[in-house]
Write a protein that binds this DNA or RNA. Structure first.
Lengths: 232, 232
DNA sequence: TCTGGTGCTTGATAAAAGTCAATTGAAAAG
DNA sequence: CTTTTCAATTGACTTTTATCAAGCACCAGA
């Protein structure tokens, strides 16, 4: 493993507080793997053998049932994933695939559970990570239950613009079909929703979105910090 | 606080492994409170002052935005709630109200975070609790995204019958309107869905549900362990 | 330059879910 | 025993979302 990769992992809140010796145990047991675009890393229903840490690229999490499929989230580096399944040693509830060429550090689940029992700082970090993720999904569920797909899109645009520095314009970081699935809608409906937003000054040119009338968009979206604010 | 109440709290997985002295610190700082039916305990957006432990009764968790409201879950005793907000010292994402007359043990959030830092067994228990809850909501989100309301109802009936010992008949433990909101639908649609299920042998008489043809119901519901099995 | 592929868009239609209003029915209150 | 109340149901209608099919635009490779 390259030194810079180790440093990226060490810098994660999940690992930064733990004892040096324990971290080195984990890293020694782990290894790095590179994956091309659109490769399946994990399939829902399987047992986890490794805690995954995304160092480079991005990962899409999805789930499937009765022939239907939905995207639950995307992960950008750096970040650990499938922590809950590893901790509980239970089946994955989601599938994961690369959304671009990615580099992932794999740490044996057994080692994680082991160190978790011995390093209080690591245990605290795991708790914080889980608590944050938990709250993230509560927000997703509220988003899904309390809003129409048009409203979810409007709020996503506002939130993403915020994330990009409130420039009023940004490039969609994923395919539109992937965005549709992330927002819990079909690609056809995403197109129609963009067309509707054009009326209130949202300009869409290919993957570029421009907000011409933020007030109007916010009026439609009615953003709610308890759903949309990633810091809360 | 009555001795039996303390014992109920102590017996919770969340508290059973921790050091006696630490548990007594928590209990000494806490106190019991009784609430009548339909009383608001917490309102989303507020800061948590106490970890709540439900000893008796039941609690409904809901959320509201742009005038719409949805029920996210019910809690039966014994069980702790708002753990994530307490641990992170952040705002509630859900509101809680009693779904029947209830008894709740309140433990100051500060004390919980304090003991959490000093008792590794407690920290482990918190992690396990959070991980289980996290997975619970992932399943809720999948349920919402991948199924129609009729399918959610069919699966709820199967799961609840299972929980009641697979007797083929049970009484709905909450008002139908509450069940509708829990399943992410309107009461009117719940009625219509029950009427549809009558065609495949689901008999509904007031609050009593009888499954006359489990195979047919399962054929419609297509239960999926990665959504419906509470043990996974 | 042409060609095939792929992702996106558009249109027509159907299914799912929500809304509004009226009615039923059963339990609680007088 | 009657009246009141309120959850539950039913009907008519609208909105939202999905589905199916066709068309368009853009890029990669021949």
């Amino acid at each position: 493993m390259r030194v810079t990769d180790v440093e990226i992992v060490r810098a994660l809140p999940l690992f930064s507080g733990m004892q040096k010796a324990h971290f080195e145990t984990l890293i020694a047991a782990g290894y790095v793997q590179r994956f091309p675009h659109k490769v399946a890393l994990l399939h829902e229903g399987e047992k986890p053998n490794f805690l995954h840490v995304l160092v480079e690229g991005s990962i899409e999490f999805s789930s499937e049932s009765r022939g239907r499929e939905t995207t639950l989230s995307f992960l950008k580096p750096p970040g650990a994933f499938i922590l809950a399944a590893v901790i509980l040693d239970q089946l994955y509830l989601k599938s994961a695939r690369t959304a671009e060429a990615s580099m992932v550090v794999l740490i044996p689940a057994e080692a994680v559970r082991d160190v978790f029992d011995r390093d209080p700082a690591f245990a605290r970090a795991v708790v914080a990570e889980l608590a944050v993720r938990y709250r993230g999904i509560v927000k997703d569920l509220k988003n899904q239950r309390l809003r129409t797909s048009l409203e979810r899109l409007a709020n996503w645009i506002l939130a993403h613009d915020e994330e990009c520095g409130r420039l009023g314009s940004f490039t969609i970081p994923i395919e539109k079909r992937a965005l549709a699935h992330l927002l819990g809608m079909r690609p056809e409906n995403l197109s129609r929703s963009f067309a509707e937003l054009a009326d209130i000054g949202v300009e869409v040119r290919g993957p570029i979105i421009k907000i011409n009338d933020r007030a109007a968009l916010a009026e439609l979206a009615k953003p709610d910090p308890l759903i949309d604010d990633p810091r809360i």
